[in-house]
Nucleic acid binder design. Structure first.
Length: 275
DNA sequence: AAGGAGCCCAACCGCCTCTCT
DNA sequence: TAGAGAGGCGGTTGGGCTCCT
């Protein structure tokens, strides 16, 4: 077959997304919904390949994304699902509302793998590690098996954040502009994207780490405004105040709440409004 | 204070699968 | 049925950040 890579085209940009590009992509999808990723860059005026746009949207810009570290129950669920499904991250992600396969994959590789090894469990096979050293580790950590036995509960947790408002990301149909509710949440920003950033706060308060690396986009979230964006009419249904809660478009000027404030105030509210 | 090591995660790459003709 | 195109998926990488010495 020899299909050519989609990003081979000369002139297509690679690397970290800038705020401008994000704005364009968001604006386009809000106006047109998700369709035909191949055509998106052209129609949205982006010098990116469709794949890159899709990735950026699904992994980072989607309004229904949760950010931050996985909760304990989510983690257990991931481990349990991994034992059943292996590295099928998208399938695993389908059981964790608001989480992306990329996020879960990253979390697995950086946290869970280590944890399991420490517990004397082979992260690949989910069986006790064989080597003596590892076995001795295991005997030191009697909680390991029990941690696993706990997973039986986790296993029953399909969509652990059960509630009428939850859903599995893979079940989310093609999002039409009128269906998109922009949350009053830091979901679209790294401001709360990890415990690290939330606990140690300021270090990653820029719009995105990727942005921060790009020359012209090291802009604090609060500084970014998109007043000129043409939001779809339907968006006004939720009111611009709610919309402004999306950090990067929040106005932190006089009399306006900062995104953080909005988030604190509306975090729960928007979740329920959303679904 | 400096700098090296390790961590973390967004983004890329290339293959796979599905759909259409 | 085979080929082509598009989206999806999983593995990997690059670079910024934090921690440690």
């Amino acid at each position: 077959m020899g299909r050519q890579p989609c990003c081979d085209k000369v002139g297509l940009k690679k690397g970290p997304w800038t705020t401008e590009e994000d704005k364009k992509l968001i604006s386009f999808i809000l106006n047109n919904g998700q369709c035909c990723w191949r055509a998106v860059p052209k129609l949205a005026g982006l010098l990116r390949c469709g794949k890159s746009c899709r990735l950026r949207w699904t992994n980072y810009l989607r309004p229904d994304l949760k950010r931050g570290l996985l909760s304990e129950s989510e983690e257990k669920l991931v481990i349990d699902l991994h034992s059943q499904l292996g590295n099928r991250w998208s399938k695993i992600a389908a059981n964790l509302p608001g989480r992306t396969d990329n996020e879960i994959k990253n979390h697995w590789n950086t946290h869970i793998k280590k944890k399991l090894r420490k517990m004397g469990i082979d992260p690949l096979t989910h069986k006790p590690l064989a080597s003596e050293e590892q076995l001795s580790h295991q005997s030191e950590h009697h909680e390991a098996p029990s941690a696993y036995s706990d997973l039986s509960t986790a296993a029953n947790l399909h969509c652990p954040l059960d509630g009428p408002e939850t859903f599995c990301t893979d079940e989310v149909p093609l999002m039409e502009p009128h269906e998109i509710i922009v949350p009053c949440t830091p979901s679209a920003t790294p401001c709360s994207s990890s415990s690290r950033s939330s606990s140690s706060t300021t270090k990653r308060t820029t719009w995105s780490s990727s942005s921060s690396s790009s020359s012209n986009s090291s802009v604090k979230a609060e500084e970014i405004q998109i007043p000129s964006m043409e939001w779809p009419e339907s968006v006004s249904f939720w009111g611009m105040d709610d919309f402004m809660g999306w950090d990067f478009i929040s106005h932190d000027g006089e009399g306006k709440l900062s995104s953080t404030d909005l988030f604190n105030q509306n975090q729960e509210q928007w979740k329920f409004e959303l679904f």
